[in-house]
Design a protein around this nucleic acid. Sequence first.
DNA 1: TTGTACGCGTTATCAC
DNA 2: GTGATAACGCGTACAA
Lengths: 356, 356
Amino acid sequence: MKRKITLKQIARELDVSISTVSKALSGSKEISEDTTQKIQAFAKLYNYRPNNIALSLKNRKTKTIGILIPEIVHHFFSTVIRGIELVANKRGYNVIVGLSNESFTKEIINMEMLANGSIDGFILSISKETLLKQDYHHFNATINQGMPIVMFDRVVNEIKCDKVIVDDYKGSIKAVNMLIEKGSKNIALITTMDYVSVGKLRTQGYLEALEASKIVPDSNLILKIDDSLVDEDLEDLENEIEQFFKSNNKIDGVFAVNELYAVTAMKVARKLGLSIPDDIQVIGFTDGVLSKHATPSLTTVSQHGQKIGEQSADLLIDRLELEEDESLDYTDENERNENFKTIIIETEIIERESTK
Amino acid sequence: MKRKITLKQIARELDVSISTVSKALSGSKEISEDTTQKIQAFAKLYNYRPNNIALSLKNRKTKTIGILIPEIVHHFFSTVIRGIELVANKRGYNVIVGLSNESFTKEIINMEMLANGSIDGFILSISKETLLKQDYHHFNATINQGMPIVMFDRVVNEIKCDKVIVDDYKGSIKAVNMLIEKGSKNIALITTMDYVSVGKLRTQGYLEALEASKIVPDSNLILKIDDSLVDEDLEDLENEIEQFFKSNNKIDGVFAVNELYAVTAMKVARKLGLSIPDDIQVIGFTDGVLSKHATPSLTTVSQHGQKIGEQSADLLIDRLELEEDESLDYTDENERNENFKTIIIETEIIERESTK
DNA sequence: TTGTACGCGTTATCAC
DNA sequence: GTGATAACGCGTACAA
């Protein structure tokens, strides 16, 4: 078992100085061709690779991005990670992953763990508990320490950082408009509680779309599900939706803010003897495996998770490599605040069998 | 914007030496209570945290685990990551993720990128291309450098490392036995190509189970799908399965080695006018979202991905922290080879609506 | 052409 | 009780 070899060992072995080795390996022409050859051959033989940690310490940057998300067993988030990893790798960065598990405390612990030199910047999506508490001091603290953050999907405006969001609002309008065009008259909305920003925006889009078509929204047609209660409890969810359908039997269209609600709605509809899409059409938000493989397959508003990840990574790395140059001088402290971008990823409707 | 503060800065500010600060902060009683107080107060005020990179360099360990998996947008793998992250975090480790995307080359690149000091050890699952090529030199090279590896799910025996595997063989037997007990006479198998080790084992289990019940396996009842071709191409998959069903119309039970095949089989069966589970029963391997939310919901063999992750992480960290002690002396080089464990995670059948 | 010295941030050892 | 020094592995400005 030969442990990793270091410059020092090569130097000792070949009886030259450490810096000679270093220079020879980086191909500096300060060093004679002879010694360069010799050193490079030796290094290759022993498979020398510079130690990342030493480089990180020296360069004061780790070439590593920290991802902090609420949950990983989730199609959307894993798609985003895939996107981040893709461009990060292409641009020479590694990716370190932390999970908040929707908990405020775990979010903070994870951030502190990573912010102490392990990474150059964060890409994150805020946990539900944090959104509920509206306590964002840890984000601001991190930013104030000079560590850039890119937020995606679940963001809050008040934080000064780059953001990548889905056009939840417009996506919902598109979805509801499609239901209207295809003949639905009484369109129900199945959504989450308001504190999840995306839930709120999607609800707004639903309302706007109805009004634009001169349809008066009916609050009885809106079902708000407290997913902190339901979550994994599938039966509760089914029952809740079943009650909802039974007390509103004129419903002929459903817009659900995620695919689970949409698929469950389809299941309940079928149970009640309704045929999809003839009696009732369904569209979900968030395109994942469920939508694709459900029967009938589900028409959805796709969020392009991978693209969100790619854009987030590019945004972060751009900023990191920009700072590299400016680094030292900042005449105007506020100048940097003006530059934060918010990229909006357009949604796209993927038509499948649950709509006419 | 106050950048992260260092020992040196505190020392300068308080007009003491760096080592005094270091000692005071670590609560050493070499330092007078007075100065300790003063220094700790100052450190807290400026939110001092030791720099991880510097610590890593000094201690020659990063407290970081490298995960290398073929694909992240995949319920099983993300479940495993969740498990790893859970115990890693609990035991004070971070987790860095690399994706091979089933490619041999990307697997190697990723390993080299991480093996140069960024991590203390690997937890990985081998890419399909690597399994096909049967070229494992990069794993051996890494191990020989003194970096421990834990392999999970897709493993190969010849590599000297800890392993965590699913009891694919026994799980399949259980599944097929259940189909037999519940009355299926002609049980089909939908599987992958043989080079994926888990596919092979599951096929073996299927055959053994049949034979144990004195049923002669019929090769016409086995469908091997080349998923390097199919992959995302859902229609191809459906067509292939449909042809299979049509040319074997006596099939009244299906065991599929993953949930996608199982769900697709159900879809095709329904299309052909078969009712589930009355005309045909279906069981899948790998319990994921699809199984749970399919209609009818799918009976599956659960792999307990999270548990696999937890065990893998414990195994790796145990070894890392063990080495810490022994580190220096190894009288017998081979001794360490004897110690590698293979943990087998028992599968469990989750009964749902696709079986009687 | 090669080598010396320094610094990145930390801790541990040893001297004062 | 406090401080100077070395070491972890590397790159580079500067000296020889």
